[in-house]
């Protein structure tokens, strides 16, 4: 491997600094890095919390409490953005349960979606989602998977103008309908776009991520581990020694750092049911990030395994 001078210096500086800091300062040092939302400049921790599958636990009291513990660990580790959708089964009321249990943390940045093919059903669905979460209003609402995107975007822009919503976005996943997404990014004044991007699925690098930078659109990255498939596949593989230069102690952290190092990415939203994993994910947002050469190396290494 060819270690770049920059990554070596960053790693050495981080290690030396961390070793000499008292406990409280050390905790501050490991707070996740932040990036501004381009349309307002509001700072956002670069790792959020996804809820697809993981928070869909129905009315199970034990599993609901586990999810509440994950939310608690997420905020303790400095997280802000929690993302959900009406499509995610019981995830919305489970988030609401966790938030209520935690006394409604003020750090929360609520990211929701509208997901219905009916243009007129959008507002009622958004109101239902708001009740599930138990929030006065959402920070961000996105049109889920471009479903009936024209009328829903109109509704969301009206809500934003009326002060009932802070940001408007649109989502896709698994690399679908990128042409239409690009068209919307070029023509509509959206604040956020959400798409799938990870160490092996890199189509977004060609047009969408540069376009987001050019148009000042914040990017949320979903499926950072291909819904767990990548971490499952790699769990038997040895983490390369050079990952220590980035402060990455697991495959999940290494793959997250690959995503977060892209300058167009505002926040990645890995989903998990485990408190140790949520801490691990947020700590990947602190410390050194790979440069372009190191990013290529990470991607090539994972693809070769």
């Amino acid at each position: 491997m060819r270690t770049t001078r920059r990554t070596l210096l960053q790693a050495a500086l981080m290690t030396a600094t961390a070793a000499h800091l008292p406990g409280t300062l050390h905790a501050q040092q490991t707070q996740p890095a932040r990036r501004p939302i381009p349309s307002t400049g509001e700072e956002m921790p670069i790792v959020g919390l996804g809820t697809w599958i993981t928070f869909n636990v129905g009315n199970d009291p034990a599993l609901r409490n586990e999810c509440a513990n994950v939310i608690a660990a997420f905020f303790e580790a400095g997280g802000r953005m929690i993302d959900s959708s009406p499509m995610y089964g019981s995830s919305q009321p489970v988030i609401g349960y966790g938030l209520q249990k935690l006394g409604r943390p003020s750090a929360l940045f609520s990211a929701e979606k509208v997901w219905t093919s009916s243009a007129t059903a959008g507002p009622a669905q958004i109101e239902q989602s708001r009740r599930f979460w138990g929030v006065p209003k959402f920070d961000l609402i996105q049109v889920h998977n471009l479903l009936a995107w024209k009328p829903h975007l109109q509704t969301l822009f009206q809500m934003k103008t009326a002060g009932a919503l802070r940001y408007v976005g649109i989502t896709t996943s698994e690399g679908r309908r990128h042409d239409l997404l690009e068209q919307i990014m070029r023509s509509e004044p959206i604040d956020f776009v959400q798409l799938s991007y990870n160490v092996v699925d890199r189509e977004a690098e060609a047009r969408l991520l540069p376009l987001a930078q050019e148009r000042g659109i914040a990017v949320i990255v979903n499926r950072p581990f291909r819904q767990g498939a990548l971490t499952d596949r790699l769990k038997r593989e040895k983490l390369p020694e050079w990952s220590a230069e980035l402060g990455a102690s697991s495959w999940a952290q290494l793959m997250l750092k690959f995503i977060l190092a892209h300058p167009a990415v505002t926040v990645a939203i890995p989903a998990t049911t485990r408190v140790d994993h949520v801490r691990e994910n947020l700590s990947a947002a602190a410390g050194p990030m790979p440069d372009a050469a190191m990013r290529q190396r990470i991607s090539a290494h994972v693809k070769a395994l």
Partner: peptide, 27 residues
């Protein structure tokens, strides 16, 4: 549903095995 050929069975699975099997215990 556009680009239907790109969807797999996994894309329609909304829950984890843990939540699924726990449902039988509660029931």
């Amino acid at each position: 549903m556009s680009e239907w050929w790109t969807y797999r069975a996994e894309d329609f699975l909304l829950f984890s095995p843990r939540a699924y099997w726990r449902m039988f215990e509660l029931h």
